[in-house]
Design a protein around this nucleic acid. Structure first.
Lengths: 110, 110
DNA sequence: ACCCATGTTCGACATCCGTCGAACAACCTC
DNA sequence: GAGGTTGTTCGACGGATGTCGAACATGGGT
């Protein structure tokens, strides 16, 4: 059948940032592994999920990326078998000015 | 006996802010009740613990104030049977510039 | 077509966390 | 000192969370 489209891209769940409570954003950032991921993402463009090797299994990594995505912190682009993740910096900055910068500026290992 | 001193003030556990991991600070802020408390504290000076009526029992309130204190967010002064709590704004601002302001500026009910 | 690489999902498990009532402790007042 | 006020601590309980291995899905390469 022809109405199948060229799809398969399964609609990743990426909420509007304004619908995410601040506490959810903070909770997403309040984890060591996730904060490392966010720091890495803050360096620049897009990263494949596999890029992040922080001593956890790929199941756990996948879980953390999902938490970040559903907290409105990241956006994911699907390309083949890989997924490319990037920070939603501008949106974040618009809704919570200074928050991300402040967190990123904090000493990495307290 | 005279060597009893005039004590009983039991040494509240208030860590150095630099010893608290950022993730702990964020986790402390990542709760609705605690964020309400912090917002109230941000209004000004000192508040007795009993001031905070946010629909939780006093046991729970006590718990949250402990979490905030041990995350280095508040300082507590003991006076009689009351405890007066205040935000450690300057210290926070010095170690995590902009963080608290960004969180406080966020819309209260997302 | 087969295999491999990349990620997600599914239990399962242990731990942490928010919540409460009840008991306790300290202090003030009468 | 008896009683009331203020706040902490102690289980207990239910729900969330981080972690993993194994199974699954999808797509690329040879």
């Amino acid at each position: 059948m022809s109405n199948m489209g060229y799809a398969g891209h399964m609609e990743l769940h990426e909420p509007e940032l304004r619908d995410v409570p601040v506490t959810a954003v903070l909770a997403a950032l309040a984890d060591d592994v996730r904060l490392q991921i966010v720091r890495a993402l803050a360096e620049g463009g897009e990263y494949a999920c596999g890029t992040f090797e922080f001593g956890v299994s790929k199941a756990t990594r996948s879980h953390h990326l999902k938490v970040l995505r559903e907290a409105g912190l990241t956006r994911t682009r699907v390309a083949g078998t890989s997924r490319y993740v990037r920070l939603r910096r501008e949106e974040l900055q618009r809704l919570y000015p200074g928050l991300l910068d402040a967190v990123l500026a904090a000493p990495a290992r307290a």
